[in-house]
C-alpha cells in the first residue's frame, strides 16, 4: 500500500467536498419550475464525494491491515535513491513545461521552443552532445516551417527586442 495513494484519496475527498459546498450555492439558480443549474453538479459531485470516501476508507483499512502484520521491511537505500531520482526527473520535466508556457509570450515561439527542447532533454538526462546540439535546432526548425509557414498559425512573437528577432523569420 503506497502512502501516496492515501494522500491522493484524501486530497480528492477534500476537493470534491469543497466543490460540493460550492454546488449547494447554485441550487437557487434557474427559473421557477425548472431544474436549476445546481442539480447536475450536485449529482456528479455527490457521487464523486461518496466514491472518494469509499476509496479513502478502503486505503486506510488496507494500510491498517498491513501494519497489523508487523512493520514492513524498509526499502533498500538504492531503491529509495532511484525513487527520488525519478521524482526529480518528473518535477524537472514538469517545471520545464511550465517554464516554457510562461516564457513563450515573452521570448516568442522560436527562442522559447529551442530553449525548452534543450532544457527538457537535459531533464531527461540526455548526455549525447549531438542530440543536445541538433535536437533544439532541427525540431524548432521543422515545427516552425510546418506550423508558421505552412499552416500559418499565429504563434507568439514575444515582446520588445524578441519581437524584432521573431520578425526576422515571420
Amino acid at each position: 500500500m503506497k502512502k501516496g495513494e492515501i494522500v491522493l484519496s484524501a486530497v480528492c475527498l477534500a476537493f470534491f467536498l469543497f466543490m460540493l459546498s460550492e454546488a449547494f450555492q447554485l441550487r437557487g439558480q434557474g427559473r421557477s419550475g425548472e431544474v436549476g443549474s445546481g442539480f447536475w453538479p450536485l449529482l456528479s459531485l455527490g457521487v464523486t464525494t461518496v466514491l472518494s470516501l469509499v476509496w479513502l476508507v478502503g486505503n486506510l483499512r488496507r494500510y491498517a491491515r498491513e501494519q497489523k502484520g508487523g512493520p514492513a521491511q524498509p526499502p533498500a537505500a538504492e531503491a529509495v535513491a532511484a525513487a527520488w531520482a525519478r521524482r526529480k526527473k518528473i518535477a524537472l520535466c514538469s517545471l520545464c513545461l511550465l517554464g516554457y508556457i510562461l516564457i513563450t509570450p515573452l521570448l516568442g515561439f522560436i527562442l522559447s521552443t529551442a530553449l525548452f527542447i534543450l532544457a527538457f532533454i537535459l531533464a531527461l538526462e540526455e548526455k549525447r552532445a549531438a542530440v543536445l546540439i541538433l535536437s533544439p535546432l532541427v525540431i524548432t526548425a521543422v515545427v516552425f516551417v510546418v506550423f508558421v509557414k505552412f499552416i500559418m498559425m499565429p504563434l507568439p512573437k514575444g515582446v520588445g527586442v524578441f519581437v524584432e528577432f521573431s520578425r526576422l523569420f515571420y
Binding site: F120, E126, R128, F147
Partner: peptide, 20 residues
C-alpha cells in the same frame, strides 16, 4: 531515434495543439 528528442517534439505538438 533518441526518445528524449522524440518526447520533446511531442510535447511541442501538445503545446501547439492546445494553443491553436
Amino acid at each position: 531515434l533518441p526518445y528524449t528528442a522524440f518526447s520533446a517534439a511531442i510535447m511541442i505538438l501538445c503545446v501547439i495543439g492546445a494553443f491553436g
